[in-house]
Simulated scan of single mutants.
Amino acid sequence: MIDQYSDGMIEAVVYQRAKLGNDCCGDDYYMVRTSEYFLCAVVDGLGSGREARRAATAATSVIEHNHHLSGQRIIDLCNTALVNKRGVVITIVKIDFKVQKIFYTNVGNTKFSLQMANGNVIRPIPTQGYLSGRKYPLVTQEYTYDNGTLFMVCSDGVSGKLDRELIEAVETSPQLVLTETISKCQPIKDDLTFIVGKL
């Protein structure tokens, strides 16, 4: 499945597929654009299959109804919603157009990478753990961006090696980066969700 968004200020594309042999993907994602910000999130339900999907969609439902809040507050609300569910790992990226900053909040092994317009590469170390009701100390990192900055958010179905290949391909469009990366994600060993965007 491929989804895409473009409005002249930001371009983003998404690809998602299920683990081989499963009838549904245990990941979920959410994207929204307002006049003030763009928010995207990748949520990876623990394991795979229907129970993982149920946990992931519980979190994205919270995000959908609370995207105006900070990443930390959204994750707190997701954590509450996940009590007695399988649990998820999550990355939320909020891009504030007014201050030209990217805010990154994460729990678990979903990945986030930035290729800045000046060539600098940023790959924050994820916070260990997962959401299932237990409280975590959350930290939001922020980065100033310029036009031409590329960002990526993905579940662990995209390997670390492909992260590096993505970053080296920054001069191409998000669609081309996504297509090239997905073509190398064979065989399908895990659920996969991959968002690539350019500012």
Rank of each mutant, 00 (worst) to 15 (best):
Met1Glu: 11
Gln4Pro: 00
Met9Pro: 01
Ile10Pro: 06
Ile10Met: 04
Glu11Phe: 09
Gln16Ser: 15
Arg17Leu: 01
Lys19Arg: 14
Leu20Gln: 14
Cys25Glu: 02
Asp28Ala: 15
Tyr29Ile: 06
Tyr30Phe: 15
Met31Ile: 10
Ser35Thr: 13
Ser35Phe: 15
Cys40Val: 00
Val42Phe: 10
Leu46Asn: 05
Leu46Val: 04
Gly49Leu: 05
Ala52Gly: 02
Ala55Thr: 10
Thr57Phe: 02
Thr57Val: 11
Ala58Val: 07
Ala58Met: 10
Ser61Asp: 00
Asn66Leu: 06
His68Gly: 10
Leu77Glu: 07
Cys78Met: 14
Ala81Gly: 04
Asn84Ile: 03
Arg86His: 07
Val89Cys: 07
Ile90Arg: 07
Thr91His: 09
Thr91Phe: 09
Lys94Ser: 11
Phe97Cys: 09
Val99Glu: 12
Lys101Pro: 05
Tyr104Cys: 09
Tyr104Trp: 12
Thr105Asn: 08
Gly108Thr: 03
Asn109Cys: 02
Ala117His: 02
Gly119Leu: 07
Thr127Trp: 10
Gln128Asp: 08
Gly129Tyr: 03
Tyr130Ile: 03
Leu131Ser: 05
Leu131Gln: 02
Pro137Cys: 03
Thr140Trp: 00
Glu142Trp: 10
Thr144Asp: 06
Asp146Ile: 03
Asn147Ile: 09
Val153Thr: 11
Leu162Gln: 12
Arg164Val: 12
Ile167Glu: 13
Ala169Val: 02
Ala169Cys: 05
Glu171Tyr: 00
Glu171Ser: 00
Glu171Pro: 00
Thr172Cys: 13
Ser173Leu: 14
Pro174Thr: 08
Gln175Ala: 14
Gln175Val: 11
Val177Asn: 15
Thr179Lys: 08
Thr179Gly: 00
Ser183Asn: 14
Lys184Gln: 11
Ile188His: 12
Lys189Val: 04
Asp190His: 04
Asp191Lys: 09
Leu192Asp: 05
Lys198Gln: 11
Lys198Leu: 06
